[in-house]
């Protein structure tokens, strides 16, 4: 450990100052706009925002989709991660590679594919009509279902990766020991796996939840103006309504919800631990 403080500061300051100037200061300024009206500190912008039913709908929809995607990712994530860690080492590495692969592909490209799949003449509707389940194509695109599917596909890998590293650290004999003691699979999961992997779940859950809430591309492409989420609403407020105050309110809500999600998930994890 070097002792020289001047040298240390000289090395660290450029990055810190850069982040502060380019990032922290403008963002704080932007957020402060939502609390000001005619140079007075006030919450009126927030009251206004939530008094409009469209905004309330969008807010609740964003929360709901975030929660649903996180829940689905957790369930599918556990099943997938458990299957992957039980593979032999070589196959395991390849599977992890395949899970990570989509993360390297542009989200625009990944979301775009769903148009082909879920559109009026997309694969799903073609298949449904071919087997005679329906005569008219279902409207899937531009519904919450489409956004949900798109978000889940986008963020599932993050959950799987977090859970894989948590499961890898599981004591080797924990599951067999519980089985020998007579626990069924449900009990094994609830009493052994979940408590021992909760940190991975919290990390993955936070990533998926905040990712889903702050995603722009998926609701923009798959939801359009029919299924607005907070990010697409923010974009509209600026580009269509030129309303920076409203944008600031949404920005603050997004940041608060991201932090709140992290704290809440940590709480849930530790609460389960105590029982």
């Amino acid at each position: 450990m070097f002792q020289n403080r001047t040298e240390a500061l000289a090395l660290a300051l450029p990055a810190a100052v850069f982040a502060a100037l380019v990032f922290v200061v403008p963002v704080v300024l932007l957020l402060s706009e939502g609390f000001k009206s005619a140079d007075q500190w006030t919450l009126s912008a927030y009251v206004d925002f939530f008094s409009q039913s469209l905004n309330r709908t969008v807010f609740l929809r964003t929360l709901k989709l975030g929660a649903l995607v996180t829940l689905a990712a957790a369930v599918i994530g556990y099943a997938t991660a458990y299957a992957i860690v039980s593979l032999p080492p070589g196959a395991k590495g390849k599977m992890i590679g395949l899970v990570v692969l989509p993360l390297m592909i542009s989200p625009v490209a990944r979301t775009y594919a769903w148009i082909v799949i879920l559109g009026r003449t997309g694969i799903v509707n073609q298949a449904l009509m071919a087997v005679g389940l329906t005569d008219e194509p279902f409207r899937i695109l531009f519904t919450e279902t489409a956004v949900f599917i798109g978000l889940l596909q986008l963020f599932l890998p993050l959950m799987v990766i977090s859970l894989i590293s948590a499961l890898e650290n599981l004591p080797r004999d924990a599951v067999p020991a519980a089985r020998v003691l007579g626990a069924n699979w449900f009990q094994v999961f609830w009493k052994v796996i979940l408590p021992l992997t909760r940190e991975g779940l919290v990390v993955g859950g936070t990533l998926v939840f905040t990712g889903s809430m702050t995603a722009y591309i998926t609701p923009a492409i798959l939801g359009g103006s029919k299924v607005l989420m907070l990010e697409t609403l923010l974009y509209q407020q600026v580009t269509v309504a030129n309303n920076f105050v409203s944008a600031s309110v949404i920005a603050f809500i997004l940041i608060v919800m991201s932090f709140a999600a992290n704290i809440l998930l940590k709480r849930i994890a530790t609460a389960r631990n105590r029982t």
Partner: peptide
């Protein structure tokens, strides 16, 4: 931690 859209907007608004 901060959503990217907010950063872009903040830079647009203040710079």
């Amino acid at each position: 931690i901060v959503p990217g859209i907010i950063v872009g907007l903040a830079l647009l608004r203040y710079f």
